[in-house]
Amino acid sequence: MLTKRKVLVAITARPSYSRIRTTLQALAQQPNVSLQCLCSGAALSDVHGRVADLIRQDGFTVADECVTLVPGNEPRHMAYTTARTVEQTTTYLEQYRPDWVVTIADRYETLGTAVAAAYMGIPLIHVQGGEITGNIDERVRHAVTKLSDIHLVANQQAANRLMRMGEHPDRIFVTGCPSVDLARAARELPLAHVEEAIRSGAQGHSINLQEDFIVVLQHADTTEHQSSYQHMRLTLESVRRTGLPYFIFNPNSDAGSAAVTRAVEDFLEEGKAGVCCRVNNLEGKLFLRLLAQSRCLVGNSSVGIRECAFLGTPVVNLGDRQRGRERGDNVYDCSWDAKALAQALRKQIQRSYGGSQIYGSGYSGELMADIIAHLPEPTAKCFHEAGEE
């Protein structure tokens, strides 16, 4: 009788699910894998779309829900959430004892998962290590790298960084980014599906998706969270001045997110926002279809760097949140300056770009699942000096 390896995937937020969804679909088809998901953090938050419900709707098993998110607008609340994630994940791991744990990207909850797995002696697979950004996420990402046994990275540049950090080449696999798989599939979705979803869960004006429009998705920068309110006001006022209709999406749960949300609410209440529509949450592929149709994405989300590169969507990337990440020609980097932002918007809403495969060709999930399903038993990890066998 075939003994299945137990794979537990920790999902802590809406973007985490987007970045692992196609891998889960492929893992579910592997005959030697017993797959479960552990949801915590913002994945259980109604304000952030409660992605745990979508995971179940997609047919995956949510083994447990760990309520770890500590609401608040200060950096200490991220630390508190990390501590809760360590505690509750450890409790679950002790009961379930998976053969492998998968953790995704660079959020603070990701660090909590990694610490728990490492101290419990359970091999850890890290998705999307080796990348560079301009805030606390980079420190978290590199810390998780050193706690992990296997690395599934988006491109060769990321792999090279991991090797310089002392990770053995045999533990590193260049797979591309599975969220690009969703972008590939999203291009084929009818716009009518996007329109229907927006009508059922949005506030504000009705926007014709066959005409030009802008999408705003902006998070707080954890290194400048005190300026979150002013940054969001600057973005909204600059986008309004273009005269184009625009969608505003809610931020994630990082420190400063409450200030971003308050800036949006104040801006809308003043009654001078123009033609705009506020959206709390949109299913991943539908959101990417909206981006593919848009004239431009404005903000500081990694979706502008990853998925929009593949889609060829023009992006105005603000501030340092994504500083250092490999990017396509579709990205225009801009400071928090009104004149510079106005110039960037004028340029990008008039441009068209071809798609880029710097984060994969859209088939990463299948490759990652095959790797996970056939990994050998891990050996003890130690620092690997370059040039050593």
Rank of each mutant, 00 (worst) to 15 (best):
R233A: 04
D320H: 14
L288T: 06
D266G: 08
S238M: 09
K272H: 15
V264D: 07
I305D: 00
L288W: 10
G256N: 10
F249A: 02
V303D: 00
E265W: 12
D266H: 14
Y332P: 00
H231Y: 12
R306K: 07
E326Y: 14
M232H: 12
G324C: 13
V331W: 00
E269P: 01
L288M: 13
R241Y: 12
F267M: 05
V239K: 05
T242W: 12
F267V: 04
A258R: 11
C276L: 09
V315D: 00
G312M: 08
V298I: 12
V239E: 07
R295A: 10
A309K: 01
E326Q: 14
L288F: 13
L290Y: 06
D320Q: 11
V331C: 00
S238H: 06
S257I: 11
V260H: 03
E269Y: 14
N317M: 13
R295K: 12
I248Q: 04
L282F: 11
V239T: 07
K285V: 07
T313Q: 01
T235W: 07
L268F: 10
R289S: 03
Q322S: 03
T242G: 03
K272L: 15
V298K: 02
N300V: 11
Y246V: 07
T313C: 04
R306I: 15
L311Y: 04
N252H: 12
E326S: 12
A255H: 11
C277R: 14
P251E: 08
T261H: 07
R321C: 05
R289Q: 08
R289C: 04
V264F: 12
A273R: 11
A273Q: 15
F267S: 00
R241K: 15
N330I: 02
G284M: 12
L282C: 04
Y332Q: 04
P251D: 05
L286T: 05
L311N: 02
S257N: 15
A258N: 13
G304K: 02
E307W: 03
Q322D: 04
L286W: 08
L297Q: 03
S253W: 14
R240H: 12
V298M: 04
G256S: 10
R327L: 06
L234G: 09
S302R: 12
L311V: 05
V315R: 00
A292I: 01
Q293S: 13
R323H: 14
F247I: 08
S302T: 13
N281L: 08
C277I: 09
T235P: 01
T235S: 03
A255R: 09
L311F: 06
N280P: 01
E283T: 06
L234E: 09
F310W: 12
V315G: 00
N250H: 13
T235I: 15
D329S: 11
L236N: 02
P314T: 06
R278A: 09
L291E: 06
R306Y: 11
Q322V: 06
L291Q: 07
C276W: 08
C308Y: 06
V264C: 11
